[in-house]
Design a binder for these strands. Structure first.
Length: 497
DNA sequence: ATGTGC
């Protein structure tokens, strides 16, 4: 099939797994969906494609606007969206980052095998549930004050290192080495800091979780070896973000931008796309505040990991160093960053083109993961020759994937790939379809997956059946060469927010 | 995602 019709839009098939909404009317550039027809079917009835089309109207956007294979509708922009916008003549949009600034994932490896953990699952999941704060509201691994929050916002994981919650190797295995230097703590609203001060080291709620997993499949043996992954190995995955602090930053700046740039925002097809023109005071303030919230989220995941190491020490009665509980990598999937990408500016629209001139772009990745291949200058030495690890969490019944940045990601998607399985239904619908207690019992009896959660409703909202097939999402990423499959994991213990 | 409405 060469075209695909949905919701009054006609997508043209560019090549296998690449679909285009041609530029028309108020669009500044064409938009692309990276997906199989099966995945397209799952978004054909909601607002995902219309939202993607709308993002293509943003001033300064570089072709193409992109929706990833796990995309679904979100606030203004689709979740699973990549919008690369000129940082000099374009704009920056909080909705293109998302409410949970630097929601992301880190994976820790261990030298334990599944046999070491079998028989201890119940004790382990209970100890993790007791040790790691989760759910809505306050309570973190550490209680801090606004002065400390300012330090965290400014210094990121360097703060955690100075305070004894991290080792130097943790910083080398984190995107941006755990510190975004463009952070401006003074641009973070006081209310956001107040919300954050008792949430440092906490999972939160929704789709956030902490999971002990076993590696079930190694697909690229050489890369897996570089990453320290092998079959049957136990790993730990942590998925959380910037909690109430990031949420407050997003909310306040959306409002400020709507007020100060009402004419600019009014010209956009959806108020939820609210953006500040590049070079404006609010664009700079939002960028500084967002970067600070990014640092906060990295510290949050660092402190959760620190606590996980302590819990494993208690349960297995060994030091974490002897269990080799090292951070593999921490990657963000709700983020915007100034990055240089080659853009052809000679044609009728600015277009991503390997032969173009390097331009500074605000690359908005909302529910999309940076997936830089070997050779990209931002990568730390450990991954410079192999490509960065990309960690993609699936549902609690399906497991997750480790990829590495693919050779074609820069030319296809501004160095990005998917971020998860992607929801199939709303949380409200999920609670009508599933009962949390039944889901938990089923997972234990049928798949030996031990789940502990803050509430039964959360389990229902996150039941495996509310997610797309993560295998299909990964197949698209791998086939397109934007993120190459390295290993697959399967849940052993899951702590849900 | 979120002290789950203004």
């Amino acid at each position: 099939m060469d075209t695909y019709d949905a919701n009054g839009l006609t997508l043209q098939r560019v090549r296998d797994l690449v679909w285009e909404i041609p530029r028309e009317d108020d669009m500044n550039v064409a938009a692309r969906v990276l997906a199989s027809e099966t995945l397209l079917d799952e978004i054909s009835g909601d607002k995902t494609l219309e939202q993607l089309r709308n993002t293509a109207t943003l001033p300064g956007i570089v072709e193409p606007a992109i929706c990833m294979p796990d995309g679904h509708q979100g606030y203004g922009f689709p979740v699973g969206g990549v919008a690369a916008i000129d940082a000099e003549n374009g704009c920056i949009s909080p909705g293109g980052v998302g409410f949970d600034i630097n929601c992301g994932v880190r994976m820790m490896t261990t030298n334990l095998t599944y046999d070491d953990v079998r028989g201890h699952e119940e004790e382990l999941v209970n100890a993790l549930f007791e040790g790691v704060p989760c759910g809505l509201g306050g309570g973190g691994v550490v209680e801090t004050d606004v002065e400390t929050v300012n330090q965290i916002l400014d210094r990121g994981v360097e703060w955690a290192l100075a305070e004894g919650y991290a080792v130097p190797a943790d910083l080398d295995h984190c995107e941006d080495e755990g510190r975004r230097h463009d952070a401006d703590p003074s641009a973070v609203p006081q209310k956001a800091k107040d919300r954050g001060k008792n949430q440092v080291g906490s999972l939160g709620s929704g789709n956030h979780f902490l999971e002990v997993q076993r590696v079930t499949d190694v697909v690229r043996e050489d890369v897996a070896e570089e990453f320290g992954l092998a079959e049957d190995q136990i790993v730990v995955l942590i998925h959380c973000g910037s909690r109430g602090l990031g949420h407050q930053v997003c909310q306040d700046y959306v409002r400020e931008i709507e007020k100060a740039h009402s004419g600019f925002v009014g010209g956009l097809p959806d108020r939820e796309l609210a953006a500040a023109p590049a070079g404006s005071q609010l664009a700079d303030e939002y960028y500084g505040a967002m970067c600070a919230a990014i640092n906060f989220a990295w510290v949050n995941r660092q402190l959760v990991m620190h606590r996980v190491r302590e819990v494993f020490e208690d349960v297995f009665d060994r030091k974490w160093e002897s269990m080799e509980m090292h951070l593999l990598y921490d990657v963000a999937h709700n983020i915007a960053k100034k990055e240089a990408h080659p853009v052809d500016t000679a044609g009728d629209v600015p277009r991503l083109d390997p032969d173009g001139d390097e331009r500074d772009l605000y690359v908005h990745r909302k529910g999309a993961t940076r997936a830089f291949p070997a050779g990209r200058s931002e990568l730390p030495p450990a991954f410079a020759d192999v490509g960065q690890p990309v960690i993609i969490p699936g549902s609690m019944g399906a497991g997750s994937y480790v990829l590495r940045g693919g050779d074609r990601s820069l030319e296809t998607s501004f160095g990005s790939t998917a971020h998860g399985a992607g929801r199939l239904m709303s949380r409200t619908q999920a609670k009508q379809e599933f009962w949390g207690g039944d889901v938990r019992d089923d997972l234990r009896e049928r798949q030996k997956i031990y789940v502990r959660a803050d509430s039964g409703a959360t389990i229902a909202e996150e039941a495996p059946g509310v997610y797309k097939d993560v295998d299909e999402v990964i197949r698209v990423s791998d086939t397109l060469g934007i993120g190459d499959t390295v290993a697959r994991t399967f849940p052993v213990c899951n702590v849900k927010g």
